[in-house]
Design a binder for these strands. Structure first.
Lengths: 192, 192
DNA sequence: GGTTTTCCATACTCTGGCGTATGGTCATTG
DNA sequence: CAATGACCATACGCCAGAGTATGGAAAACC
């Protein structure tokens, strides 16, 4: 018996709605997350939605929670496996070309920073990442203040790159130009 | 005779609508630009709006045009007055604390990069600024490829800082921490 | 002085979306 | 077998906004 396709599933769960919500956010942004278009995309009516969720806002909150937990686990696993701080910093940049959905959601969340449910998530995620970066720079010998500044500078480069990507003004992630740029960034920001 | 206050003006011009549109975008983002709320803000009805503009989109286009021309003039004036390329690069960062409305509009335009009318404007503005930065780095002795990479890196730092500002995760523009960070950025990115 | 133009107000239709009330179907439980 | 629960569809009311049609007031023009 063939496995059920999405629109052939007997019933949907709250998790199905949350995952689809994240895909919609990745594609069209937070403001595009609306009950009726999401239901149409799921091939079902909003009656089902309102059975699982009290409203649009509670779906958004749960979807953001799911994304944040996934991102946190990935960060810990990806960087936790690397001993040398320099290698951790280098791999931070190399992650841009991986985990496409995570970055696309993050990019759209950045664009919606003024949204009351989105801002605290962005704050926690950025703070966690800045702490990771700051710790790595301190392990490389920078004092706490310089490490913090270098972490903010490094994270700004990452955010700026996401923004230029949204403006379609970055080289393709698989191109030599992109590789050259990443090498340039690494040489400029990470002490050898 | 006292000068007329805004809401006491005899009649409004298209320029009045365009300026108010930019202020609304700076405060609440591109998606908040809507005819009826803007009319209420102007203390008038949308009947006047539709006399001056064919629709919301034509207002947005005109407002973006006004902003882009203003930004281009400012960039040329501010950087055009400075001979030494290093000073031009330094002043690029110091501009962040000035021209509040220009930066606030730009920040919100960045957030709306997916919007069909906004994206080409962002592309032109970023390209113009990248060329300014690239030229300055070449004057400082970098070859064309390195200068371009360093320009992109430098501009990413600026965009990243705007994003962290929107997330309320930057120090105040008047604080010593901000000054220290700017000094750190200058030391790291601009050859002495 | 009458006509035209400029500017704006009012009332209306339409749309997309939020959320609720109600009822139907099928699976589960006792 | 009947009752209950899970899940969903349908119909409805409401809201905010886009845009249009129409008319009024005042200034400008001949």
């Amino acid at each position: 018996m063939e496995p059920l396709k999405k629109n052939e599933k007997v019933t949907l769960s709250a998790e199905d709605w949350e995952r689809e919500a994240l895909e919609l956010i990745a594609e069209n942004g937070v403001q595009a997350l609306a009950v009726e278009p999401l239901a149409r995309r799921m091939g079902i009516t909003k009656g089902s939605f309102y059975w699982h969720f009290s409203g649009r806002e509670s779906l958004l909150v749960k979807a953001l929670q799911r994304w944040e937990e996934h991102d946190g686990r990935n960060l810990n696993r990806a960087l936790g496996e690397i001993d040398h701080p320099r290698d951790r910093l280098v791999s931070f940049f190399r992650r841009v070309g991986k985990e496409k959905l995570t970055h696309e959601v993050y990019s759209e969340l950045c664009a919606a920073a003024g949204h009351p449910q989105v801002e605290p998530v962005l704050e926690r995620v950025a703070e966690r990442r800045l702490e990771h970066l700051s710790a790595a720079f301190e392990e490389l010998g920078l004092d706490a203040v310089k490490a913090r500044n270098q972490a903010r500078l490094t994270y700004s480069v990452y955010l700026g790159f996401l923004q230029l990507q949204r403006q379609h003004q970055t080289p393709s992630l698989t191109s030599e130009e992109f590789d050259a740029y990443i090498e340039h960034v690494i040489r400029t920001l990470i002490p050898s």
